[in-house]
Design a binder for these strands. Structure first.
Length: 270
DNA sequence: TCGATCCTGTAG
DNA sequence: CTACAGGATCGA
């Protein structure tokens, strides 16, 4: 279920706890987790290598290993990844495990089994993400970049924001929250947003995501905690029929691209 | 550009 | 029981 903020916090935890450790063995509980690669291939590629770094790109977790190999993990809808102590039982829903030499293990827990683990030459990681848009919290993401990407697009703004080729990391929740903060109706064609609203959208994306990271970070007490940002703090997501926190109008839910969109019909204009 | 699809758990 | 779930890809 994680979007950029949740993946960011999960990545930070791993980046704090596992670099320097060596993978003693690996285990694929669910063969579909590595598709299109085979479990045997993935296990063979990672065994015996040292974890040098853990980082994030869009909603992917990357583990850079010694010997020029990188593990790419995508949590999709229900994935979670964290370290368990030596001797701890594998959690229910475990799909993939990296056992470390010191006895700890990194587990991929994923009830819905849509998550993915694949291995790639580190040198080729760049091209893996060649179609993915800019990281919204980095300097490369500017109003101008946003404007260029939005130009002439007829896609509704909400659907447009979910497309990872435009901006990396937004999902159904934070796309809705971002549009509310920017006071843009989710049905507005992206190409019709003028400089003023694009500037608001740019700023909203950054501030909403940064706040969500801070919120998610705050709820994690131990590694296995899922850094679920506080949905009670959402302005629109999941609040159909409830009053808008800014104006009191009732929040509406519509379907866009077969997914729910929540918005305030009063605050958010076309 | 859209719907179907990969899966399973849970809410209504 | 059915509807739906915070993702992404694939084929029509």
């Amino acid at each position: 279920m994680p979007e950029l903020p949740e993946v960011e916090v999960i990545t930070r935890m791993l980046a704090r706890d596992v670099p320097g450790s060596t993978i003693a063995r690996a285990y694929v509980e669910r063969p579909s987790a590595t598709r299109p690669q085979t479990p045997e291939f993935v296990v063979e590629q990672v065994t015996g290598r040292q974890i040098e770094a853990v980082w994030r790109r869009a909603k992917n977790i990357l583990l850079t290993l010694s010997g020029g190999i990188t593990i790419r993990v995508h949590l999709r809808m229900t994935g979670h990844m964290y370290v368990i102590p030596d001797g701890a039982n594998l959690p229910r829903g475990t799909r993939f495990v990296l056992y470390l030499e010191d006895g700890r293990a990194i587990v991929l827990e994923d009830m819905r089994t849509l998550g993915k683990v694949t291995v790639h030459p580190t040198a080729s990681i760049g091209e893996l993400f060649s179609d993915v848009g800019p990281e919204p919290l980095h300097g490369e993401f500017t109003p101008a970049v946003l404007a260029t990407a939005a130009a002439r697009s007829k896609q509704p703004a909400k659907v447009w924001l979910l497309d990872q080729r435009r901006v990396a990391g937004l999902g159904n929740i934070w796309a809705a929250e971002t549009l509310h903060r920017a006071r843009i109706d989710p049905r507005t064609p992206a190409g019709r947003l003028g400089p003023k609203r694009l500037a608001r959208l740019h700023e909203s994306i950054r501030s909403v995501l940064q706040q969500a990271i801070d919120g998610a970070q705050a709820v994690v007490q131990q590694p296995s905690d899922f850094p679920e940002a506080d949905l009670l703090g959402c302005q629109v997501y999941g609040r159909e029929g409830e009053p808008c926190r800014s104006c009191g109008h009732l929040i509406r839910r519509i379907a866009q691209a077969a997914r729910s969109t929540y918005y305030c019909p009063n605050c958010q204009k076309r």
